[in-house]
Every structure is written in structure tokens, then in C-alpha cells.
Design a protein around this nucleic acid. Sequence first.
DNA 1: GACGCCTCTCGAACACTGTGCGAGAGGTTT
DNA 2: AAACCTCTCGCACAGTGTTCGAGAGGCGTC
Lengths: 257, 257
Amino acid sequence: MVGKQQYATVWAREAAEGARRAAQTAPAGLNRTQIVRAALEILDAEGLDSLSMRRLGTKLGVGATSLYWYVANKGELIDLAMDEVYGEVALPPAAGIGWREAAKVFAHSLHRTLLRHPWATRILGARPAMGPNAMDLSERAMALFEDAGFTGTDIDYALSTVMSFTLGLSVSEASWAETLKSSRMSDDEWMAQHTEALRTALAGRPRLAAIHAKLLAEDGPPARQARFDYGLDAILDGLAARLDARRQEPAHAEDVR
Amino acid sequence: MVGKQQYATVWAREAAEGARRAAQTAPAGLNRTQIVRAALEILDAEGLDSLSMRRLGTKLGVGATSLYWYVANKGELIDLAMDEVYGEVALPPAAGIGWREAAKVFAHSLHRTLLRHPWATRILGARPAMGPNAMDLSERAMALFEDAGFTGTDIDYALSTVMSFTLGLSVSEASWAETLKSSRMSDDEWMAQHTEALRTALAGRPRLAAIHAKLLAEDGPPARQARFDYGLDAILDGLAARLDARRQEPAHAEDVR
DNA sequence: GACGCCTCTCGAACACTGTGCGAGAGGTTT
DNA sequence: AAACCTCTCGCACAGTGTTCGAGAGGCGTC
């Protein structure tokens, strides 16, 4: 009937075809998991733009087109690599430490993971996360907020708030690292090149200039951490307030009805 | 001395060279602003991957390489287009409506603007925002939170919280639209292709499945709006609490010291 | 052993990308 | 008339993702 079905994501294709090829282990040959691992090494070391099929092939000592036996196209490869990243995120159960603390561990882990793989932030806006690791993470995250006392769609809404904030901050922070890496400049070269632009930019904008000066005083990574913690605490406060309000409403309201 | 300086961003180049070419109006010929406008039309209609220099050239009835007279490279073009997007975001002064309401208008406007240009979310993680419109937006945003009562680095931290949340949510939502557009599928085709994948994904994950069912009940855009509002309100509550706490501390604590 | 089949590799080729270079057209100034 | 500046663009190059079809090697069956 149809010549050859085109699938938009790996996950759709595998679900339809059955994941024969994924688990398969060729005795001496290639392996899908090791292809993805090699791709991750290139991505982490040199950035998204440096990953090409030919480059990945030579790294594995293999022709570029051989890779297409294990992966339908580059998009699938990137989706697989991305799901590996999601697999690195820690999310402890709320039991013992409480939901706020667990949410903090989750958010911090997600943040650090994304900064360890700055290219990943460029994928976030391009492909939906549907891999097994992403799904597992979702499941555990939903469990966390449900056990915390959120109900119905609020479970998702609360999780989305924490997660969107973390994603957004990571994306902003990583964008800097990504231009820098793709321009092949050092930190100082970039700064030197942009001081002039920054000076003219701050000239007519006093509030921005004032804040910028204050931010420069407390430098680098610790300041970024402070910003992250400030926002996260504020968010958790806001969510906790919603939780308390809900507890004081007439109980079992939906049971009566 | 140096043969030809390579600049990482337009803004650095223009600051160093002086923006001669930008304002210049060739009587009958091309124009940088109209190049950017045409690029925006392609980006909005067909997505980031469909913008190529040759395509843009033919759209303007001009050779592809002619564009390089007005723009150093494709990266600059995209930075310029991106700054245009920032220019569409509304941010009213707090005066009259109060800072919470103003922040809401800002966040909603940013959200809607990014969904109107889904490709833009892919740029967020790749290039820092340093254009004049982005800077103006920053200036006004800083003013908003400073006038609200935040001080010192808290001004930036509070703004970052609201902005990161909005960015992150927009990125997640747009990723869906971006795969869809690049796969040239209809909404329904995509759904049909992924029901199987979704079914197997939800099989071993009960919490996720439960929430998913609840989210399906209240469909589409209004639900997304509810999610956004829930998070934004929670965040503003958290920030407001910080503001009140600060007000009740011994005044002028840092003056005494 | 011979045959067919399945798994896997890969070279050649195609259509496309961003961009450097240098020639040249047209206009303005000297 | 000569020199210059602004602007356009064809050609070419190195690189991209991906298709196709040929072929190698191993395994099971007649």
C-alpha cells in the first residue's frame, strides 16, 4: 500500500514496528546504545553544530551511512541522546525528606544536568520529550506532587510551574555557553568584543545599568545559584500556600456533591 | 593588522564599526529592515529550517549573495529577527494597575508572542538576547520590579523568576508545534501516529496516565491558559510574600549596620 | 555442498546548505 | 575623463543529511 511510512519521532516508529533493532546486539559490530553514547560525547565536547553523521561515523570507525541501519535519521539520533539526558536527572521520592525538599533536589538536578549538556537546551524548543526516561521522570514527578497533596489537574499545573521555571532559567544560561562554543572564542575574547556593545546598551538604560553593576559585584556561578534558589523558593512558597488553602476548604467536597 | 575581524554577534560588530549600513536607505534597492521582515515571514510561515539565504533571496527577487551586503552572516540575520520578536512584547508601567497586574500583562504578552513565533523558542537556547528591543524590554521590566519594591539584586532575581517560568512554558509548548511543522503533518496525522506510542508509554505509569486522562477532559488552548495562570499566580504570590517580609524588617537596616 | 535468506556495511551520488571571491554595473565626486 | 564608492551576483567550495543499490558474511534448509 503505502511505500514507506515516515515517522515524526523514534517513539512512534518503534511503537508501530516493535523495537526489534534497538535491543539487538551484533556480536562484533555496532550497537545503537554505543552510537548514542558516541553522539553524546561529541555533543558535550563540541556542541550541537559539530555533530554530523560523517563525523560520528569516523569516530566509531565506520562509514557514515552505516549508522542508518540503527537509526532512521539524525532527528531520531538526537531524540535518543536527549532521552539519555533526561535519564541523568535525579528525583527522590518525597517520603522522608518532604515534598519541598524533594522538589528542590529535582529542580537542582535538572538544572545542573542541562548545564552539563548545553546543547540540550536547543532541543527543548524543537522536539517534544517522549522517550522512556522522560516518561519515567514525569511519572515520578507526578507522584511527588500528588503525594504532596495536589489533586486533579493541579498535580500537573504545580509540576509544570517548577519545571518550566527550571527549564527557562537553564535555557537562558546555556544560550551564552552555546554562542561561545560555536564562535570558538574564549570567555575573555567574547567579553572583550562585547564590552563596547554593552556600554552603548547600558547608556540610555539607567535601571538596567544599575542592576548590571550590582550583579557584577557578586560574580559568576554562586550568583547564578542564588538567583535560582531565590526563584525556586518563591515558587515553592506560592505552591505551598495553594496546598494549605485547599486543606482548609470543606473536606470531601467532591464526595458530597 | 588583523585581516578581518570575526564578530560573534551583530551587536558587537555594529558597536565596533558604527552602524553605518543599518540605517542606510538605498533609493531603489534593498534594505536591511525589509530583509529582516521577509525573513520573519518565512520563519513564521514555514519554521526555522525553511529559512535559507537562497530562499530568502528569491522571495525578495534578488540573488542570495546580495544579502551579505546588509548582513554579515545568517546568524546576524536571525539575531535581528529575534530582536524584532522581543519588540512585540508589551510591558506596561506599574503605575495605575499595580505591579502584579503589570507583571501579568508582561508574562502573558511574552507567552503569546513566543507562541506566535514558535521558531523563536529554538533561538532562546542558542543565542543571548542583546538587541535594542531586548534591552528596552529588560529596562522596563527592571523598572517594574524596582518600583514594586524589590531592591538590589532581588530586582533581577524576581524578574528572572517570572521570565524564566514564562520562557520555559513557552519552549515546552512550542516544541510540539515545531516538530509538527517540520514533519509537515497535520494535527490529526501526528496524533494518529503517536497514539500507539502513548499507549505503551502510559501502560506502566499509572500516575502519569491518570493525570493525562484528566488533562484530556478539559481540552486544548483553555487548559494551557489555566496551567499558565496557575503557575504565574503561584509565583506572584511567592514574590509578594518576599516583598511583605522585607517591608516588616527593621527599616534602613543597612544604613545603621 | 548449494541455495536462499537475513543482517549489516558502505561507496557513490543527489540535492541542498552557508559563504568567500572577484568581476562588473551604475552612480557620484573630483 | 578618471577615480571612487555602493551595490549585485555568478561561480565555486566545502560541507550537510539521506537514498540506493551492490555486496560481504553468516545461518538454516533442501
